[in-house]
Structures are given as C-alpha cells and as structure tokens.
Design a protein around this nucleic acid. Structure first.
Lengths: 104, 104
DNA sequence: GTAACTGTTCCACTTCGATCGAACCGTCGG
DNA sequence: CCGACGGTTCGATCGAAGTGGAACAGTTAC
C-alpha cells in the first residue's frame, strides 16, 4: 500500500501575509529558511546551527513554515526533503523573501 | 515644567529582523502600518478599520510597533503624532517595508 | 483652579505558541 | 518477518503575548 504520508501544503495564494511574516519572525525558523536558500535539505541536514534540537521541536518548527507556504516537505525514501518554495512565494509576495534573506 | 513624556524609541539598527517581522505579523498592527504609509496620524485617527478598539489595546499595539523601530510616537499638544520610520527602516532592512506594503 | 480630553501604564485574565518526551508510522536492510 | 532509522503526531507543561477596564499623567479650554 502506498502509505506515503504526503503532508498538506497550502497554496501560497491562500496564505495570509501575516502568517508568512509570523513564520519568519522566529529566529530558529528564520535560520532554517536561510539554510534552505542554498538548496533543498533533508530534515536531518537542516538545523545545523541548533545541533541538539529535539526532533519533535524541529518537526514543529518545520510545520509552521510549511503551513505558511514557505517550505515544501516531501517524502524521499525514509527521509524527507525540505525545499524553499521561493518562486511560488515570490509570485504572491514579490521581493519579500529576498529582502528578508538580504538582511544579515 | 516640561513633563513631556517622550517614549523610548530604539534605533532600527539595534532591532532584530525577527522583532520587526513579528510586529508586522499581526493583522491589526499591519493595518495600522498601512494607514501610516500615507502619512502621520494621531492615535485617534489611526485604527480606522477597528473603530471600537479599546484605547488601551490600541496603545499596546502601538507600543509593539514602536519598540520594533517601525513607528515613531511623539507628543503633540495633548495628543500624539504617530509616523512611520520608513527611511530609517529602509536603511537597515532595504526593501522589506516596501514588499510588505505592496502585498494587497 | 478645575474639568474635559488624549493617551499611557498598571493589573488581572485569558489565549496562544514553544518545547520536548513518548508513542506512533512508513521505509529500508538483513 | 523484525529491528533500526528518519520523521511526524500526541499530550502535557510552561512562558509569552493579547485583551480591556481602571487608574494615572500631561495638555488645553473655560
């Protein structure tokens, strides 16, 4: 059986700007987004700056980013590939992600 | 005596990006920022979309915006003039405010 | 002076979000 | 099969933030 657990991913057009801003307003979440700007990562790979962060906590942080339409999380074998939905986000909120990532 | 109550205003350079994003992540606060984009307003004037918002609540919303370096609040007679610190904010986080205000 | 006006601060209450262990689920290797 | 692995979900706890009435403070009008 294809018990593939695909997580819900809202269309960025359905996400409120305030939800995006809120998701980015947490240092740990913002750091994850910065890491993902260089390319997709598995869950285990990202969060390098917080090495001993419990996996349940990291999963929750990722859930907020995913539900804000910022990140895509798709199964890949027994891991999960996380990637930034940059193009889709740019289409709805032009320049937002760039200005956030540009800040030191 | 000049008992002028000047409220503390942090330099935008001293404010973390996440604090700015958080301040903007609330619908009521974001709405106030949108109104202020057209020009300075008194406390009584801004918050038009939330007409019957208690003044203590509105004052608290404004405090968050002020402490995030987004807004200036200066005494003017017996009222207070609130203005957007656009130039100062642009200098520290280029394009951020514009992209936020550009979104419908 | 004193009263009305504009806003801030204080306080208590409530709601929301962060955190993390434990249980659970799908996948791969033997 | 079965165990190890990579992640998600659940549930409880805790601190942070929103809310709003009441008291307070500065300013102006009378």
């Amino acid at each position: 059986m294809t018990g593939i657990t695909r997580l819900p991913h809202p269309e960025p057009t359905d996400v409120a700007l305030t939800d995006v801003l809120f998701a980015l307003s947490d240092p740990a979440r913002l750091e994850i987004v910065r890491e993902l700007a260089a390319g997709p990562l598995t869950m285990a790979e990202c969060g390098v700056t917080n090495p001993d962060l419990p996996k349940s906590t990291k999963s929750h942080l990722m859930k907020v980013l995913r539900e804000a339409g910022i990140v895509r999380n798709e199964p890949d074998g027994r891991r999960r590939l996380v990637s930034l939905r940059k193009d889709e986000l740019d289409a709805v909120f032009p320049g937002l992600l760039d200005s956030v990532l540009a800040a030191d």
